[in-house]
Nucleic acid binder design. Structure first.
Lengths: 93, 93
DNA sequence: TTCGACCGTGATACAAATACCGGTATAAGA
DNA sequence: TCTTATACCGGTATTTGTATCACGGTCGAA
């Protein structure tokens, strides 16, 4: 075996990651953000929809810069499973 | 044209990026750091030598975590051309 | 010298990222 | 109605990332 296919967990992480980018994009259009980051709109759409679950580092860095996001927070948010309000409250207690 | 080949500038950026990782690794062995990050030693070596100039985001995130590096600082350091002491002094003046 | 642990290179293999194209759908506006 | 803008999808093409294997070099210890 030469290159392990992406695991379901990695694909789910890609979906969470895409949701984060989409939320950060807000009302701005895909083409606008993609152009600001220097990537194609198709690439941004695939990342946001989770169909490109493991994008390259510099692609993500350019998008994060265009969106005003921190790479460290982005990685932490996508790596950790989602947590709703009650879970966060239970943790902080 | 479907996928633009990497430009020389992108390859140089990959080399600078690899140097940063190698410096951060210090005296630790490739095998140790690669295992801690969950990637193969060959992959880490290719990234450090610049032969894989655009690694995936989560691969870099895992390596940065294993090395105690900030993804934001890493991206900024690799994106900007290297600056020596005199240039930094001229900028700060 | 021999052994072992690293590091490096090259070949090989396969999956995935990126990009372009055409088509479809929806909503807002003239 | 017609046009425009936006987003989604399928297909296609090409490059690259990731991983495994084999081999060679270097260095320090036995």
């Amino acid at each position: 075996m030469v290159r392990t296919p992406l695991t379901p967990g990695e694909r789910e992480r890609g979906e969470r990651f895409g949701v984060l980018l989409r939320e950060a994009r807000g009302g701005r259009s895909m083409v606008e953000v993609a152009a600001a980051a220097g990537v194609s709109a198709e690439t941004l759409r695939k990342i946001e929809t989770g169909r490109a679950p493991t994008p390259s580092f510099f692609t993500v860095a350019a998008l994060a810069y265009a969106l005003g996001l921190s790479l460290d927070e982005l990685a932490a948010s996508a790596a950790l499973p989602v947590m709703d309000g009650s879970e966060a409250e239970a943790l902080s207690a």
